[in-house]
Structure formats: structure tokens, C-alpha cells
Computed example of a mutant assay.
Amino acid sequence: MSAFDKLFQEAKAARETAYAPYSNFQVGAALLTSDGKVVSGCNVENGAFPEGTCAEGGAIAAMVRAGSTKIDEVVVLADAALCTPCGGCRQKLSEFASNRQIKIHVANLEGLRRTFTMEELLPAGFELNEQIED
């Protein structure tokens, strides 16, 4: 099974557990970490909008909890033609991307719709500075 296939299955399973009583729009995300772990997350809505959590944010939290901090590949899955990460999630993914060329696959329930690199999705995101100037 390819990395994409494993991530697709994990994102699809995560989507099924999403808590989306307001929008009825379930999203799942799965990440492959640089140390070989696969973690996933789902969107969790909240009546105090926008206090919910996107699937990508949930997956990142699970990744950090599992002891990893670098992402090598991502699948985001929803029942939509093309559900790319929102702006905030693009920045969150960028924060943990192992490099600017990681693949971010966007899928629907049938399969892959399109693949982007981190650079394509967020060409001018905030960058972590190695040194802080006084």
C-alpha cells in the first residue's frame, strides 16, 4: 500500500468521526510524519463559531502529542469537488512541514482530486526565524 493510500484511508476514517452538527460538512485529514507515523484528525464544530477545530489542526495536535514535529505528506478529504486547507491551516501545515515541497493531496470520497506542494498553497507564509534580532 502506498503512502497516499494509507493516508487516504486514515483521512476517510477520521472524516467519519467528525463533529459537524451545524454545517454537516465533515472533513478528515491524515499526516505522514518524518519519523514514519501516520496521524489523523477531523473537524470539530462549536456553537461559539469560529471556536471549532479544522481537521488539519486536529491532526497536527495529534502529531505533536505523539512526539513528532515534522510533516512529510498530507491528505485532506471531504465530500466536495476540491476542499483545500483554509488559510489558517495552510499556515499551520507550513509551520510543521519538513520542507516547502511536501505533497498536500486533496481528495473526495472517491479518491484524489489534486496534489499541491506547500509552496503552491502558501507561497508567502510566515517563516520561523532562526535568530531574533534585537
Rank of each mutant, 00 (worst) to 15 (best):
T69S: 07
Q131S: 13
R100N: 08
L32F: 09
E51G: 11
F126C: 12
G52V: 02
A20I: 05
P50H: 11
A107N: 06
L82V: 12
T117N: 06
T69D: 06
M118C: 02
K37A: 07
G125N: 10
S68N: 03
I132D: 15
V64T: 09
L128F: 13
G47I: 09
G41A: 04
F126V: 14
V64Q: 05
R90S: 08
A48Q: 13
S2E: 07
N99D: 10
Q101A: 13
D5M: 04
P50S: 08
R65L: 14
A97G: 04
T33R: 00
T53M: 14
L7P: 04
N43F: 06
G88D: 10
A97M: 02
E56P: 05
V74H: 00
S68F: 00
D35L: 01
E56W: 02
C54I: 13
A20K: 09
E119H: 10
A20R: 10
K103R: 13
D134Q: 12
G87L: 12
E73M: 07
Y19T: 11
V44M: 08
G57N: 08
L109R: 13
T84F: 04
V64A: 05
T84E: 03
P50V: 10
A62H: 02
S2P: 02
E133R: 14
H105N: 12
S94R: 13
V106C: 09
F8R: 03
K92R: 14
K12S: 09
E119A: 13
L128R: 14
R114Q: 13
L112C: 04
R113E: 14
A78N: 01
V27G: 07
E51D: 13
Q9P: 05
E119G: 11
C86L: 11
R113D: 09
N24Q: 15
V76K: 11
A30L: 02
R100I: 08
E51T: 14
F126K: 15
G28K: 05
Q101S: 14
M63I: 06
K70I: 00
L82F: 13
E127I: 09
A97P: 01
G41D: 02
E16Q: 15
L112W: 05
M118H: 01
V44C: 06
V75G: 02
E95V: 07
I102E: 01
E110R: 14
A62Y: 00
